[in-house]
Structures are given as C-alpha cells and as structure tokens.
Amino acid sequence: MLAQQLINALGLGAVYALFALGFTLVFGILGVINLAHGAVFMLGSYCALLLVTRLAWGILPALAGAMVLCGLLGMLSDWLLLRPLRARNAPHLAPMIATIGLAGILGSIAQAGFGVDTQRFPPGTIPDAVLHLGGAEISWIQFDIIIVAVLLMGGLFVLLERSPLGRQLRAVAESPRHARLLGIRVERVFLLVAALAGALGGAAGVLIGLSFNAISPFMGQPMLHKGIAVIILGGMGDVRGALFGGLFLGLAEVLTVTWWSSDVRDAVAFGLLLLVLVLRPSGLFGRTLIRRA
C-alpha cells in the first residue's frame, strides 16, 4: 500500500508542479502574481476539448493547439493589461488585482460559452490502460504527466540557465531597467514570458483535464491555491522549486492521508508550508530575488 501511495504522491505532485511552472515563471520574471493563471489553465482544457470534439483532432495536435492559443492569450493579457500598468509605473498590487479581474472575465466567458456542467474528453481520447508496477497501479496518463512535468521543468531550466534567451530573461527578472541599458528589448521579453507561461498553463490544463476527467469553468481556482503554496514552498520564481515544491506538497498530502487522516490533510500540508516559511523564508530552493529599480 505504501508503494501505491508513493506513486499517488508522485502523480499528484507532478500535477501541482505542472501547474506551478508557468505561474512561477511569470512571478520570477514579470514580478507579478498572476491570479489569472488558473483561468488560462482552465481555458487550455476547453481549447483541447473543443479541438478534439468539434474538429476531431488527435489529442497531441489538440495539446499543441491549446498551448498556442493559451500562449496567445497570455501575450494578449500582458499587452492589454500588464504593459499599460508597467508603463504607468503602477504600484505592486495593481497588476495582481488586474489579473484577478482577468480571471473573473475569463471565468464568466467560460461559463457563458461552455456552461457550468463538468465536461470531459470523449472516452478513448487516451488509452485508459493501467500500468502494474509490482502491486501498485498507475494510469498511463498519470505516468505521462510525471514525464511531461519533469521534461518541461528540465527544458525550462535549460532554457533559462543555458541559453542566451534565458540569460536575458534572468537579467530582466532582476532589473528591467538595467536590462534595457544592455539593449535587451524588455517589453518583448515580457511578452515572450507571458506567452510561454500561457502555453505552459494551457498544457497543464489539457493534461490535468485528461487525467481527472473534470473540465469545468471552476477547475482553476483550487489549483491556484495549491499553485501558490507550491511556488512559496519551492522558492518564488524558481523553476526547479516548482517541481520540488509540487512533489513536496503532493507527498505531504498523500502521506498525511496514509499515516494520519484525510480530515487533517490540508491542515498538515499548509502547516508544513508555514513551517518552511518560518525556517526558510525564501522557500526550499531558496534565494529570493530582490528586484532593483
């Protein structure tokens, strides 16, 4: 049973990590807590669902399509919402509030357009086979999510740490003003990050929608809460932190259920979160980026 629970924890943690990747990227580089990430995640699910059901696309092209559309949505929201705020040097809270507004608008659009009923991919969209690993079971899609989360995290990490573009992203993260003095097109970087985060959020939405069979206009909100916990745990803005924070939270939740009780699951998980914050204020992965003017 413990082996099964560890697999459950890995699967759940990967889900959290997948969601948190785009979330942490935007925080790390744009310095914005993007509370619309849950809505983008939700729309990603619907995009793929429509592509699969209306246009009869396969799930992989639909995943790509959802990523592109959510990437565009990310760009659009940066261009229309965050850029004007940056230009006006709005106080720190303003962009976050703006993303709450955006989340509300996107949520209403989804409710109006898709209805409030939970929807799901048609049976057979992905093989619903189960892998047996010595007494423990894991569904293919869960297995895929773990792989995808690790691959995306790895890809993002390499992009950020090893590529010229990543170098520029990190420079902008630390100081947009100084980055401009080195000829970096900061607005383009912001737009790119917003697109990347949107695409990652969309991908997370598709995979999680597939895995849990529950696509609804409300699916983003609970995920957002976990996402916030994950990026605080992992270290705000750190992509490795998103993976480890996600796994940590997944493990904490599942082991609490296993060894104690599901009644106290969230209390223990969020209690641990507080403990980590007290002991290591900058998160498990810890270095806090302090943005300079």
């Binding site: 420079a171 100081s175 100084h178 003095l181 080195l182 270095r287």
Partner: peptide
Amino acid sequence: EGRGIFLSL
C-alpha cells in the same frame, strides 16, 4: 549608478 551588474547572474 551602482554599476547595473545582475547580482543573481
């Protein structure tokens, strides 16, 4: 002013 070095890089 302050040199503009990115300290995290």
